[in-house]
Amino acid sequence: MSAAARLLAALLADPGRVAQVRTEQWPMLLTIARAERLAGTLALRLDGLKLPASVQAALDAARTEAQHNRTTALWESEMARRALGDLGLPVILLKGTAYAAAGLTAGQGRQIGDLDILVPRDRLDTVEAALLKAGWEWVKPDAYDDLYYRRWMHELPPLIHTERDRMIDVHHTILPLTARPKPDAAALIAAAVPLRDGLFALSPTDMVIHAAAHLIADGELDGGMRNLWDIDRLVREFGVNDSHFFTILEVMAQRHGLSAATTRALRLAHALYATPLAAPFRARLSQTDRLFLARILARDCWGRGMNKPFRLGFYIRAHLIRMPLPLLLRHLWIKWRRMG
């Protein structure tokens, strides 16, 4: 675990600590913030505070980058709206684009990558055809990969726009079909809330559950600091003044089969950012939680991933939880044969 990564988390949670940051700690803070894609977030958190000139310049750059990123992401969602808006189906924005479009604090300064959307599974063909017609094309024109995505994954194979060179991931649920938890995609769609322009976002509690699922039940915990930051902001924005928030969160997490992932993500967010939690979610960190936290903070002061064997363990875990072992072996076998 890295002291520098912890310092970044502490600074995000409590910008007032900026006065205690020593000069020689700044370069590593900036590097880790960039590596964890939290530089824009840090810039906005430290806005208006007294900073050394070089730090201010670096954070101004991060803020400009985040602003540009936001404009591009929202334009891309508008492009998707134009392509899909008249199909008579809900188009639900996910993750960063949704936070930005909904004007949430989780979206402030956040770096946003591909456009992720969720649509009803029985309308995938319609959506796919409309996107292809509007200028998106397949990134991986490969029969096995294509089949793999369509049979086992929670999304279509990635599409990229011919002219704008931006990717769109079309999801029909929030976890691979091969993972053990089976989120109720119909319930996610039914609870979605409309945004101004006719697109939708997940309900606040589903946003938290999706972020938790993505972090704990899907990947290898890369980008975990940012993911937990998203969760922290969502909980603070929706949970603090709404006595029902945590009750609904508990019920919905259970319904989606993601209680364990959600409760763990909330414990980790609390450990890292002092996220305020209601009673059912408040608990001491388990030994396993501590391992997760160590993995999330395994980045050294040069921005490098630390402790390769430890990371490898989480990498293997990520694959094992994504699909049953026989299927994983078959997949690896096919991939390995094609490499030769």
Binding site: T23, S54, A57
Partner: peptide, 12 residues
């Protein structure tokens, strides 16, 4: 003046 780098380069 302040040794706070804007950018980090790694030769690895």
């Amino acid at each position: 003046d302040d040794l706070i780098a804007h950018f980090t380069v790694r030769l690895e």
